[in-house]
Amino acid sequence: MKQFVEKMKGKSAYAYLIPCFLVFAVFLFYPFVKTIYLSLYKTDKLGQAKLFVGLENYTDLLTSESFYNSLFVTLLFVVIVVVGSMLIGLIGAVLCSKAFPGIRVFSTSYALPMAIASSGAAMIFKIILNPTIGILNKLTGLDINWIADPKYALICVAVLTAWLNSGINFLYFSAGLGNIDESIYERASVDGATGIQKFFRLTLPGLSPIMFYTLVVNIIQAFQSFGQIKILTSGGPGESTNVIVYSIYRDAFFNYKFGSAAAQSVVLFLIIMALTLVMFKVEKKGVKY
C-alpha cells in the first residue's frame, strides 16, 4: 500500500494535465486525426468517408497544376505579408519609442489594426480599391481595377493583411524596445555613433529575441489568412489569390471534395511544421539574448 502511494505521488502530476488534455483532445487532436483519416478517403456530399483510396488524394494533388499555383500564390502572399507587417510594426514602434506631444494618438493608431475585424477591414478596402468610386484611384489619378486585375489582386490582399497583422507586431516591438536599456544609446552617442549605426548595431540586435518570436507567429498567421481573401477576392480573379487555405475551403464546401481538402490541410500542416522547426534551428545560431 505504502509503495502504491509512493508511486502515485510521482504520477499525480499527470492528473493535473487532464483538463487541459481533454480540451486539446476534443478541439485539436480529434479533428487532426480525423483530417488525416479523411485525406485517405473519397467522401460523399456530407463529408462522410465512403471509399478508401489510400494516397490517391495526395498523388492527385501533386499532379494538379492548380495545387502548385496555390502553393506559389501562398508563398508569395506569406512573404509580402510577413515582410510588410513586420516592417510596418517595427517602423511604428521605433517612431513611437521617443516621447513627443501627441504620442498617444500615434501609438493608438499604429496598434489599431489589431482591434479591427479582418472582414470589416476587407469591406473598407473594397470601397477604397473600387475602380470608379475608390479613393485610391481618385488620389493617385490612376485607373486600375485593383481587385479584378490578376496582376494587382494578390498584392492588394497581401498589403491589407500586412496592415492588419502589423498592429500586434507594433505592440511586440514596442515592448521589445522598452526592454533595451536607454543608457547604451547614451554611451553610443558619446562613442560617436550616428542614428543609423545605433539602429543597426544596438536596436536590431536588442530586438532579435522578440523579432524571432514575432516572425514565427507572423508566418503561421499569414499562412492561415482567410476572411479578408474570402471577402475581397474570393480567390480570384482566375486563381490569382487562391491561397491554400482558401483552396481548402473551396474544395470542401463548394466542390464537396472533403478528401482532397483534407489532404491539402495535411500538406499545409507539414509545411508550417517544417518551417517552424527550421526557424527554431536557425534561432539557436542567430538570436542573441
Binding site: 536599456d181 543608457s183 547604451i184 547614451e186 554611451r187 553610443a188 552617442s189 558619446v190 562613442d191 560617436g192 555613433a193 550616428t194 549605426q197 548595431r201 544596438l202 540586435p205 536588442g206 532579435s208 542573441k288
Partner: peptide, 30 residues
C-alpha cells in the same frame, strides 16, 4: 557624437548583445 569625448558611465552601459571584444572595439569600428 560630435563632441569627441569618451566616457565611463556610472552604471557601465555595456552593449548587452555584443561580446566584450566588440564592446571595446565599438567606437573604433564605427
Amino acid at each position: 557624437k560630435d563632441r569627441d569625448l569618451s566616457m565611463v558611465f556610472q552604471n557601465y552601459a555595456l552593449y548587452p548583445q555584443m561580446t566584450v571584444y566588440d564592446n571595446m572595439a565599438f567606437a573604433l569600428q564605427i
